[in-house]
């Protein structure tokens, strides 16, 4: 059975029921609209509106879901010995995300967050964390296109506070 998803720009995507169920948000909406896998009529007559996702981003989300639709649910990993949360991004996922520029990754992440697709959300989080890794403050600011609102004194204070971890 297929499910119809409608994006903010009115594009309709027809996806497999299993793929639709990968999104907790879509899953909940289907429940609310009494759409079930065994009831073709309910699936045909309804479509799920997704006002926070554009068609371009939705297409990327679906591409990811297609690849991962048969994955076993992953267990939550504990933080590593340095207290960090870690997530292993598979080779396919790295390849999938590697050409996305930062802004596009953020859009995709926003969609993964809204649709509640944990695996994709974790993949992008880790990818962005990897992009930040090893960069200096000004490089990170450029990446996020941030205008620094800190005064020189505040910067100095922050550097002083965080200098210990640079020893």
């Amino acid at each position: 059975p297929n499910v119809k998803l409608v994006t903010s720009d009115n594009e309709e995507f027809v996806v497999d029921f299993r793929i639709a169920k990968m999104s907790v948000t879509v899953s909940r909406l289907m429940e609310a609209m009494n759409m079930s896998e065994t009831d073709d009529a309910s699936l045909l007559s309804n479509s799920i509106p997704l006002p926070n996702v554009t068609k371009a981003v939705m297409a990327r989300v679906i591409e990811w879901c297609e690849k991962h639709k048969n994955d076993e649910p992953k267990e939550e990993k504990e933080n590593d010995k340095r207290g960090r949360t870690t997530h292993v991004v598979s080779d396919w996922d790295k390849e999938f995300l590697k050409n996305d520029e930062f802004g596009r990754l953020c859009q995709l992440m926003g969609a993964a967050n809204y649709l509640e697709i944990k695996g994709l959300f974790n993949d992008i989080s880790q990818t962005i964390a990897n992009m930040i890794h090893g960069k200096k403050s000004d490089e990170i600011a450029e990446m996020f296109n941030i205008h620094c609102d800190l005064t020189e004194a505040e910067k100095k204070e922050i550097r002083k506070k965080t200098a210990w971890c640079e020893d």
Binding site: R82, R84, T86, H87, Q126, A129, I132, S137, D138, T162
Partner: peptide, 21 residues
């Protein structure tokens, strides 16, 4: 979302991020 990313960063990276804004 930013909090989630920050928790994936090491100490130096998160300190550098903190100094951006």
């Amino acid at each position: 979302i930013m909090l989630r990313i920050i928790r994936m960063l090491g100490l130096i990276d998160s300190a550098n991020l903190a100094a951006t804004c």
